[in-house]
Design a protein around this nucleic acid. Sequence first.
DNA 1: ACCGGGATGTTCT
DNA 2: GAACATCCCGGTG
Length: 215
Amino acid sequence: MARVLPRRFYGRASTVVAPELLNKVLELGPCRGRIVEVEAYAGPLDPASHAYRGPTARNGVMFGPAGHLYVYFSYGVHYCANAVTGPPGEGQAVLLRALEPLAGLEEMWSRRLRARRVVDLGSGPGKLTQALGIGPAHNGADLVRGPIRILDDGTPPPAQPGVSVRIGISQAADRPWRWFVAGNPNVSRAPRASGPPSRGSRTSPAASPRHPATR
DNA sequence: ACCGGGATGTTCT
DNA sequence: GAACATCCCGGTG
């Protein structure tokens, strides 16, 4: 049913590919999760991108062909994963920021020891890589050949995705290059609250499923 | 709920 | 030395 995204899917500007990655499925081994939040990093013209100062030992994968994974170590603690969108030499990539767990949840629980609810498994770029077991060995991994792959299971991207500025950066902080599936509880941060307080809140579900061991 | 700070290591000034 | 595409925990209201 689900098909692997062909390499030509990635070979466009990161700001174009990013929203199209919403609702696609990230797979590694027995684990699968739906991509519900992404950010575009637009290469050497984007001061917030690791590619801003040109190719280095760390960011080399970003300047390679599209459809590969750029993995970097963040804050001395976590790994973050990007899909390179090419074309080669442009350094464009899409940061995968949040997943809705779909399969392999037992493996995710075993790697995310601090998680208490299902939404704790993949609701952030560092949590996502930890849940799936993505690390430095996967830097440069081919998303078309696997074992890490992005699949299309027939769910289209949202017709009206949530949009905001990117999170956790100080340079070029005004560019609206973060997209997310509005209303999905696995998004790392709820959209900015505005307007009158809503009692039947959609962003704080009353019953979020918990880890079996904590029940 | 919101906010502040610590952990921890690589990269660059 | 400082900054950093983060997460977690403990304070307070």
